[in-house]
Simulated scan of single mutants.
Amino acid sequence: MKILAVCGFGVGSSMVLKMTLDKVVKELDIKATVENTDLSTAKATTADAYFTSSELTNELQNSVKGPVFPVKKYMDKNEVKSQMEKFLNERNE
């Protein structure tokens, strides 16, 4: 499974989100690769799920086929875990 953490430039906030996603993936024992990237690259990259800010959600949803999950607090493991669980539940339906 491929998961992308997306921000405008692919450097700062997406790296923070990636680190939190890595913790959640490990905690939930999911076999996944988590990468951080910028918005333009994310639009051209196929992934199973995209995690990003609320501000970029609509633009990303209009450009990719996979599900997009907004995250407000990138360092909040509980929020990120909640969105990851939402993705996993939707995927299993």
Rank of each mutant, 00 (worst) to 15 (best):
A5P: 02
G12L: 13
L17E: 04
A49E: 04
K43I: 07
D76Q: 04
L56H: 13
V68D: 05
D22N: 13
G8L: 13
K2P: 03
E27G: 00
T20K: 02
N58D: 15
T20F: 05
V25K: 08
T20L: 02
L21D: 06
I30K: 03
M1V: 13
S13K: 12
M15R: 12
M1I: 13
V68L: 07
L88K: 10
T41W: 00
T20V: 03
K86W: 03
T45L: 03
G10I: 09
Y50A: 01
L4G: 04
V71A: 00
F87I: 02
Q61Y: 01
K77E: 15
N89F: 11
V24E: 07
M84W: 06
S54I: 07
C7P: 09
N58R: 11
T20D: 05
E55M: 11
K81L: 06
Y50P: 00
L56Y: 09
A49Q: 02
A44T: 11
S82Q: 12
E79C: 04
A49P: 02
T37F: 08
Q83G: 02
P70W: 04
S63F: 05
D76Y: 03
N89L: 11
D76W: 07
A42D: 03
C7K: 09
K26H: 11
K73F: 11
T57D: 05
A5K: 06
E85L: 15
F69D: 01
V34A: 01
P70Y: 04
K2F: 12
K2D: 14
G8Y: 09
S53D: 07
K77T: 15
Y74W: 10
A49S: 08
Q61R: 15
I30P: 02
K72G: 00
D29R: 15
D29H: 14
M75P: 00
R91Q: 14
Q61K: 15
L4N: 06
M19I: 04
P67M: 09
K65L: 05
N36G: 00
F9K: 12
V16W: 07
T37S: 01
V80I: 03
S63E: 14
K31V: 13
Q83M: 15
N89V: 10
T41R: 08
L60G: 00
D38Q: 01
S40F: 12
T45C: 02
F9D: 07
I3V: 15
E93K: 15
M1W: 11
M1P: 12
V25A: 06
T41K: 11
D76S: 06
Q83S: 09
P67K: 14
